[in-house]
Amino acid sequence: MQNYKKLLLAAAASLVFSANALAVDKYKVGIEGAYPPFNNKNASGQVVGFDYDIAMALCAKMKAECEVVTSDWDGIIPALNAKKYDFIVSSLSITDDRKQAVDFTDPYYSNKQQFVAKKGVDFKTDIESLKSKKLGTQRSTQAATWLEDNVGGDIALYDTQENAYLDLSSGRVDALLADKYAIYGWLKDDPAGKDYEFKGNPINEDDKVGIALRKGESDLRTKLNLALKEIKEDGTYKKINDKYFPFSIE
């Protein structure tokens, strides 16, 4: 009888503990999935890239179970506010416009925008010369805002960065303005990228990229900031950085 009781106690205890183990936080992470090398889908439908690796490292640090949800770039912030996921790790620059709609964590990398055009072509990046060129960029990006505010006129706005590259290589646009490190990946990895190069000096030198969350979720924000600090300190961040870039983008 005594034995039986002990067994029951042990069973109950294990139940409690396993229940504790089960009670991990679960999050859905919003990622665009069309922005190599930061995030895109491979043939088996798996999201890969810098953003994905960072998101998974953060989740591991927070001891949370994370599920990736992909979204169109256009709708990535609306879908966050529509609770389709809990935070966005998708190369989202921290801007005043976006701060009206969402909160951001500390930045997890820095970027800048730069023009890219065909090799050997004389492409000047002063405003006057830009006005006479057909320029393209992705809709709802820092680059789009900059072009609209500084150059204006007939700018081609694309749903995905990939479609913008397709049109650059078909010659529909003279140049693209986009995030420098994304273009870096395209110039290096894409067969079409070999005929193109950066033009002029980068603009928006101080572009910080952060994780976006719904307004008022300060608990989650604190957790994410802490996890970000931890992966930077323990070398995980550097490992992910080096996997994609031979220089630091922190």
């Binding site: 999935g33 069309a34 190599p36 895109n40 889908k41 491979n42 043939a43 439908g45 949800v69 992909t70 979204s71 169109d72 256009d74 709708g75 995905t160 990939e162 397709l166 894409d190 067969p191 079409a192």
Partner: peptide, 22 residues
């Protein structure tokens, strides 16, 4: 496909992003 459901069109777009040849 514009809201991210992985049907034929979306999968074709994913493939183009990864492997080109639109």
């Amino acid at each position: 496909s514009v809201i991210g459901l992985e049907e034929i069109m979306r999968q074709a777009q994913n493939a183009v992003t990864f492997a080109k040849h639109p």
